[in-house]
């Protein structure tokens, strides 16, 4: 790959390895992030997401592989990147002994940004009424919002956010998504990690699913979920006999299972004729249906499948 291609991408990661003692936290990861793209890193606890983003942020040095952020090596050229990349750590990073507004104004000063923009940003993340509260007295979600504001205050070219909405209530989460979309609209590149598959689905242009430090899948949420779902799920008002239903659908007796949450899963593709047969069965037994899911698989399906495979493999 030529230097030009590297500069066309905001981030280039090739064969990244990072080991802590005997633990291979990152085990040969490669991906690229285009300028202006929202890129999500998904994966179970301990998959290596934080390790990867902290290498992008210049906190850790890769054991092997190549990393380029805005054309620079983050571990070596950290100083040059600090004013261009806004960072949100998975946890901590705020002075507990300062007030909310003092913190955002301090971070604004690091970037030569005035009080007015800092206060505006506090408003954007919904912390205006908490501006005089000590950081140590903020709730977890409020701290996350302040952290996000600190990441945004320098109007960076790139944002690296490690679980930005963890601990936020649904409204704060929606506000955060709006904020991220608005900075993306002005051309900012965003890398984020998340455990929320709907967040990835709604916010990210592309996602990388990482398991045990390796890339398990990479693509747009649409591409990843385009495989046909091999399962139909439904819930009913009253219980039914799974074996009877399986028989009625011409399936193996164990093809219908009731999961502990009271949801029934039919292990078969949700073809129109299967759905019709299901409807007939329910009519004949006078069972009301509460919900039905068939067709495209969700990102969650893909995720669970890949992560389970990785765990077994």
């Amino acid at each position: 790959m030529s230097t030009n291609d590297h500069q066309r991408s905001a981030i280039v990661v090739t064969g990244l390895m990072k080991q802590y003692g005997a633990t291979r936290a990152v085990d040969g990861l490669s991906f690229e992030v285009a300028h202006g793209e929202v890129f999500g890193l998904l994966g179970p606890n301990g998959a290596g997401k934080t390790t990867t983003v902290e290498i992008l942020e210049g906190y850790r040095q890769a054991d092997a592989g190549e990393v380029r952020v805005l054309g620079l090596d983050p571990f070596v050229d950290g100083t040059a990147l600090r004013s261009r990349v806004g960072v949100m750590l998975q946890e901590g990073g705020l002075y507990p002994g300062l007030r909310t507004r003092e913190v955002i104004r301090l971070f604004a000063a690091y970037h030569g940004v005035g009080h007015a923009s800092a206060d505006q940003l506090l408003d954007d993340v919904g912390l205006t009424t908490d501006r005089d509260r000590m950081v140590r007295r903020l709730s977890g979600g409020q701290r996350q919002r302040l952290s996000l504001a600190c990441a945004l205050v320098g109007t960076p070219e790139m944002l690296v956010l490690d679980e930005p909405t963890a601990g936020m209530d649904p409204q704060a989460r929606a506000t955060t998504w709006e904020l991220v979309r608005s900075v993306v609209a002005r051309g900012t590149t965003v890398v984020l990690t998340t455990h929320l598959l709907d967040e990835a689905e709604r916010l990210c242009d592309r996602v990388a699913i990482v398991a045990a430090g390796r890339l398990a899948a990479l693509g747009s949420p649409h591409e990843l979920t385009s495989g046909e779902r091999r399962e139909v799920r439904f819930t009913t008002a009253v219980t039914l006999d799974p074996a009877k239903l399986a028989h009625a659908l011409d399936l193996a007796l164990d093809a219908v299972v009731a999961d502990p949450a009271g949801q029934y899963r039919i292990q078969a593709a949700g073809t129109p004729s299967l759905i019709a047969d299901l409807a007939t069965f329910l009519r004949d037994h006078d069972i009301a249906i509460n919900s039905l899911e068939a067709g495209r698989q969700s990102l969650e399906d893909v995720f669970m499948q890949l992560v389970t495979e990785e765990g077994n493999g």
């Binding site: 210049g58 960072v87 990073g93 705020l94 507990p96 971070f107 970037h111 600190c150």
Partner: peptide, 18 residues
């Protein structure tokens, strides 16, 4: 010591304050 504990020193490492 407590700034280090709370990740403040780490976070400052990602700001233009050297």
């Amino acid at each position: 010591g407590f700034e280090r504990r709370y990740g403040v020193l780490k976070r400052l490492g990602a700001t233009p304050l050297s």
